[in-house]
Amino acid sequence: MRVAVCVKQIPDPASPYDLDPETHFVVRPTDQVLDDTDRYGVEIGLQLAEQTEGTVTLISMGPSGNLQGIRQALAMGADKAVIVDDASLQGSDSLATAGVLAAAIKREGFDLVIAGTESTDGYAGILPQQLAELLEVPALTFAKKVAVEGDTVKIERQTQTGYDEVESPSPALVSVTAGAVEPRYPTFKGIMQAKSKPVDTVTAGDLGVDVATKQKIVSIRPAPERASGELIEDDGEAHLKIVALLEQAKVI
């Protein structure tokens, strides 16, 4: 099975990112990390590829920087990566991004596409569905478990009240929730091998896509601040403060 996994390199969430005051785009440092939520997709991709003697190709759009994030996913075991790095795509909306990723995935060929349910920095949370529509495949979304049996893809789809069992024939797209699997840590061997794995860097022109972003940030402003409250250290009597506050709020 040929598995394409959509992964995103993002600024390290541990050091808060900035927005460019002019363009309002996220300022992207050269050192970017693999979006933590994509590690789940990579892990599932690897497991399914191992089971079916298939391959895992990473698909990514964004400034490639020093490829640190992509190498993280290659070190986990993915076979190769295609990264669409094109300055004209900066600030793309979800649909434009989906258009680019769809073109890259089609060019590679696929039986299964895997994406996260939402990215850590963008979290629009609709790109997988847009991608499925563009690729004309079913979208098995919000999966907390994924299995492949022959040509059938089966998932447990998270619902508001529990989960549904959903299946479809391949080719298909699956979006996976964090916590669906335990992502593996790269081994030393994996890290060494990742350095020589193929990374194909292409532009929108190379893929023959012409997408346009149809939304524009017009302002960024601070939210109204909440008055800061009281901070105390528990001296054994802190619970009485809570009781007093609950009384004041008239809930007890």
Binding site: H24, T213, K214, Q215, K216, I217, V218, S219, I220, R221, P222, A223
Partner: peptide, 8 residues
């Protein structure tokens, strides 16, 4: 922070 966005 609040972000205002319009359609184009």
């Amino acid at each position: 922070t609040l972000v205002d966005t319009t359609f184009e």
